[in-house]
Amino acid sequence: MTGTTSRLVLPRYLQEQDGQRTPVAFDGYRSTGLRAPLRTPVDLPHRLTEITGPVLGEDRVTAGDADLTLRAGGEAQGQRIIVFGRVLDSGGRPVPGALLEIWQANAAGRYRHVVDNWPAPLDPHFDGLGRVVTDSLGRYEFTTVKPGAYPWGNHHNAWRPAHIHFSLFGQAFTQRLVTQMYFPDDPLFGQDPIFNAIPPAARHRAVAGFDLGRTQPDWALAFEWDIVLRGTEQTPFETDDDGDVA
C-alpha cells in the first residue's frame, strides 16, 4: 500500500442545483412509483473512487459505429440526419476521449428489441445502435435517421416524442450520464412525463438545435446538441502536507 498516510489533493465535482437537474422520480411517470427510492440519498463526499472512472475509448468502437444508416448490407429507411456537438464540462472545458453510446427507434418509431412489439415495421437495415469517442476538442458526430415517435402504456394515448438515447462516461464516476436528446418544437412534448420530469429551466438543454449550416446538400439534415457533464471546482493552489503546491 502506498499513499495511506499523506493527504491527497483530489478534485471535487460540482453538483447541479435541484431546479436544474432531473429528479429520480416524477409523479406523471408511472414506473417511478415502485422503483424510485423513497428515502433521501445520503451525501457521499468525493474520494478516490468517485473522482476516478473507467477509461473507455476507441477500443470499444468499431468502424461504422458512427453511421447508423448502413447496416446489414443496405440503407436504412427514413430521413437521414447528422447529429453532432461537443461534450464539455460545466467549467467550459471540452471532454476529449469520452465514449458516447446511443440507441434509438427506427424511422417508424420501432425498437429492435423483444419487448417492443407495437404494429410499426422493423427495418432490416437499421439496428439503432451507435458508438463514438469524442475528439481532442470534445466533438462527436453520428449519421442516423430521425427516429419516429412511439406509443407507450404510461397513460391513455401516450406517445414518446422523437428522441435518441445517449450514454456517456466522462473521466470520473461522478460524471456518468444517461440521457435522451429531443428534436426542436416537437408537438408531443406537452404530454410526455419523461420530458416534463426535467425542471422547466433545464428542458431546453435536452433539445437539439437544427443547424442549416451543417446540413449536407442533397444528402442529410443536421442537428446540433452539446452535452455538459459536471466539472470540477477550481482549486489551483491547494497544498499538500509537505507544503508543496499541488
Binding site: 464539455l88 417492443d116 435522451q180 426535467i198
Partner: peptide, 14 residues
C-alpha cells in the same frame, strides 16, 4: 465558466 449541465433521463426499457 459556468455551463449548466445536461439533464439526465431514464435509460428506458430498451
Amino acid at each position: 465558466l459556468t455551463l449548466r449541465t445536461t439533464p439526465s433521463a431514464t435509460v428506458g426499457p430498451y
